[in-house]
């Protein structure tokens, strides 16, 4: 299953702005936000800001990099 990423800025109301929209077959399935230095130990990780459908999670995960994030999203969609 192939995902397509599209860089975007998200107005999170914090310093976390650099983000990626994640599409599967043209459908938006997730928004990943790059965590800023405000998050200390988690700074630099990618956070599931929003997941749609099967990617929705009550406990949104953080990922070390975009590859890990995409693997997790693919697993949820499969």
């Amino acid at each position: 299953m192939s995902l397509r990423l599209q860089p975007v800025q998200v107005a999170t109301g914090s310093n976390d702005a650099e983000s990626q929209l994640v599409f599967e077959d043209g459908f938006l399935v997730a928004v990943l936000v790059h965590l800023s230095d405000e998050h200390e130990g988690d700074a630099g990780k990618w956070y599931l800001e929003a997941g749609f459908g099967r990617v929705d999670s009550p406990d949104p995960p953080k990922f070390a990099d975009l590859n890990e994030a995409q693997a997790w999203i693919n697993q949820r969609l499969s």
């Binding site: 999170t12 109301g13 914090s14 965590l35 405000e38 998050h39 988690d42 956070y47 406990d59 953080k62």
Partner: peptide, 12 residues
């Protein structure tokens, strides 16, 4: 809310 979200809210 998540740990990420609380951090933002406290900062705000």
């Amino acid at each position: 809310i998540s740990a990420v979200h609380i951090n933002r809210v406290v900062q705000a």
